[in-house]
Amino acid sequence: MRVVVVSESFLPTTNGVTTSVRKVLDHLALRGHEAMVIAPAAGAPRDYAGFRVHEVPAVAYRQFPVGLPSPQVTKLIADFAPDVIHAASPFLLGAQAIDAGRRLGIPAVAIFQTDVAGYARRNRLGAATKFAWRVVRWVHEGAALTLAPSTASLADLEAAGVERLGRWGRGVDLATYHPRNRVDPAVVRLRQRLAPGGETIVGYVGRIAPEKQVERFDALRGMPGVRLAIVGDGPSLPSVRKALRGMPVSYLGALSGRDLAVAYASFDVFAHTGAEETFGQTVQEAHASGLPVISPRAGGPIDLIDHGVDGYLFDPRFDAQLRAYVEGLVLDEPLRLRMGEAGRRAVVGRSWESVCDELIGHYESVLAPVGV
């Protein structure tokens, strides 16, 4: 199979979209398929996983390159002659690719991954929320299939009038993120640095941006025996530092690979704060690491957390619930361990290999003759 992957984000930018695209490309190479990547100009490598990467014109917005429509996109697709177009989190660039595919007779599978309308809602833009969903519908209407990562996202897309929907989740690296990392000497050293008095470590991993609402951790202020560890970087870091001033917080910066696995393994509890996640990849990574997870009852984490079994879902309107759930886990180590074990069991069937095989099945479904 020949696949053109058109992504609104790619290396060197690191985020959930880039990660999932890389995993898809790795898997296509593993299964012997051919692929090509089209992404916004940002200094990407010329090749990835043996596939050529083509950059197209882009402008910077909030530290991210935004791909612009260009005649180059249609020509690249036509010259490669793919069987299917994979549009990752499509916006301007993805919309052009989907339209080009429609005119060339090439079906597109669109991956819904960014809550564009959530941005308008969070910033109280009123009528702009409806407009944002109209844009989402316009972008996706030409796709043969739109895949959403969660039941909440599917419901939102259905309500917006997007048709031809399916569900596709995300995989997790079960080898890198593993409970056995707890005994790694690097983890032991990090725990001694983060909690020199043997305190319980509550950790967060993710971009530090307005939609992540990391300032919520102020709800834990004054809780005895607790230290916070925040992994990530982004435009809201000054705001978060100000909101959490005077609290026992360690800022570890953006981490990846083994360093990120070490950070997860140093935590006792993982807490996610944003209520606009279309999926919640860090929830899966924390579960794979054997941690209980606390998250707002909203978006993707609703599908990933079994409330009371492997973590807790709190009402995002009441940060006091976040505090209560953290406090309960801080005071009950056996409960933390049971929930952590349950979280690991919950993700053992979600390897990237199995999830990407499922994606190839979705590709094949849009290639099947009508009526088959």
Score class of each variant (00 low, 15 high):
118 G>A: 05
119 Y>C: 02
120 A>D: 06
121 R>W: 08
121 R>I: 09
122 R>W: 04
122 R>M: 15
122 R>G: 12
123 N>W: 08
123 N>D: 08
123 N>E: 13
124 R>L: 13
124 R>H: 14
125 L>H: 06
125 L>S: 03
126 G>T: 03
126 G>E: 11
126 G>V: 05
127 A>F: 13
128 A>Q: 11
128 A>E: 13
128 A>D: 09
130 K>M: 02
130 K>W: 06
130 K>R: 12
131 F>S: 10
131 F>H: 09
132 A>E: 13
132 A>T: 12
133 W>S: 02
133 W>M: 04
134 R>P: 08
135 V>A: 10
136 V>T: 14
137 R>K: 09
137 R>C: 00
138 W>S: 11
139 V>R: 01
139 V>W: 05
140 H>Y: 14
140 H>M: 03
140 H>T: 03
141 E>D: 12
142 G>N: 08
142 G>E: 08
142 G>Q: 09
143 A>L: 00
144 A>D: 11
144 A>S: 15
144 A>V: 09
144 A>W: 02
144 A>F: 09
145 L>F: 07
145 L>K: 11
145 L>R: 12
146 T>D: 00
146 T>R: 04
146 T>Q: 04
148 A>W: 05
149 P>K: 08
149 P>I: 04
149 P>Q: 09
149 P>C: 10
149 P>L: 04
150 S>W: 08
150 S>F: 11
151 T>K: 15
151 T>C: 12
151 T>E: 15
152 A>N: 06
152 A>D: 14
153 S>L: 10
153 S>Y: 07
153 S>E: 10
153 S>D: 15
155 A>F: 00
155 A>V: 01
155 A>Q: 08
156 D>N: 05
156 D>Y: 06
157 L>A: 04
157 L>E: 02
157 L>S: 04
158 E>A: 14
158 E>N: 08
158 E>V: 10
159 A>S: 14
159 A>E: 11
160 A>M: 03
160 A>D: 02
160 A>W: 01
160 A>C: 01
161 G>W: 07
162 V>K: 10
163 E>A: 14
163 E>R: 15
163 E>G: 09
164 R>C: 11
165 L>N: 06
165 L>K: 04
165 L>A: 06
167 R>T: 13
167 R>P: 01
168 W>G: 02
171 G>Y: 02
172 V>N: 08
173 D>S: 07
173 D>W: 03
176 T>A: 15
176 T>L: 15
176 T>G: 14
176 T>F: 05
177 Y>T: 12
178 H>M: 00
178 H>V: 00
178 H>P: 01
179 P>Q: 10
179 P>D: 10
179 P>F: 11
179 P>A: 10
180 R>Q: 14
180 R>N: 12
180 R>H: 10
181 N>P: 02
181 N>I: 02
181 N>V: 02
182 R>K: 14
183 V>F: 06
183 V>S: 13
183 V>D: 13
184 D>R: 14
184 D>Q: 13
185 P>E: 01
185 P>C: 00
185 P>I: 05
187 V>E: 03
187 V>T: 12
187 V>D: 03
188 V>S: 05
188 V>G: 05
188 V>W: 05
